[in-house]
Every structure is written in structure tokens, then in C-alpha cells.
Amino acid sequence: MLQTYVDRFVYWCYYSKDYAFVHDSKLAIPLLQSLHLIGIMLLLGTTVILNLRLLDIGFRRLPLPVLSEQLWRWTNIGLLLATVSGIMVFMADPTRYAHNQTFLRKMVLFCLALIYQFTVFRKVASQDPLVRSKAQNGMLAALSLCLWFGVAWAGRGIAFF
């Protein structure tokens, strides 16, 4: 039953006229990959700013709640861009990615990063870091950075490993 749906989906991705604008076009993948990178730029850039502030090593003249209030929207725009373009690249060649170990690791890290981002990190970034100890802030920032940079490095690794 599930297998039938998967087969139909894969068949649709490779052969459907509806998706021909991606799989029959030479420019589609480079453009989608560029959008993917622009999304990553916004997502990682804003996340790094928040974490530098949380670690108290950068953006010290701006309170963390002000930073997160202003940056959160851009983190989400980046996340949305990267996710939509990523799904479209995946659909252009689903078997290549589904059988790639590095891609699967990236997806596991991505899910963990998403959960952490929208449960713990959102709350942490909206509070003054002084409500917690330095060590606690360090752990919270390290986890955020390791998860998102892990996703990014795994993504680059798909091409090599």
C-alpha cells in the first residue's frame, strides 16, 4: 500500500509533465540550488548573530530580545526558502537522495534542529541571557550552532560522500 504511493510519487517526479519544468530544464537545478543557498545564508547568518549575543561575544550593545524580535522573521524566511527549494531539488532526483547516507543523516539533524529551534531556542532567544548562568547559555548556544552547522556540513557532504 505505502509502497504503491511511494512508487507513484517517484514515477511522477521523474516523468510527469507537471514537474517537467524542473527535470527537463538545465537551469532549474542551479537556480533552485542558488535559492537554497540564499535561504541558508539568512537562516545561518541570523542564527549565528543570536548565538554570538547569547555567548556574550558579539552584538553586546543590542539586547538579545531586541535582536531576536528583529531577526526571527528573517530566520524563518531563510528556513522557508531553503526548505521549499530543497524539496524541489530532492523531487528532481528522489532515488539519488533517498539512497545517500549523508542525505539521510542531514535529514535526521534537520529534524532535531527544527525541534530545538521551535521549542527551546525560540524561548531562550526572547529572554535576557542574564536570567541563566554563563555555562547554561554556552550549552544552549553550542547545541544550536552544532545542529544547524551539522545540517549545513552534511548538506555539502552529499556531493562528496
Binding site: 543557498l37 541558508i40 545564508m41 539568512l42 545561518l44 547568518g45 541570523t46 549565528v48 548573530i49 531577526l71 528573517w74 552547522f149 549545513a152 555539502r156
Partner: peptide, 14 residues
Amino acid sequence: HILSLSLSVAMIVM
């Protein structure tokens, strides 16, 4: 290259 580019361009964009 890609990561440092992302970070510095994000700063410029902001």
C-alpha cells in the same frame, strides 16, 4: 568558502 560567505553576506544583508 560557502559557510563563511553565507555568514558575511548575511551581515551585509542585515
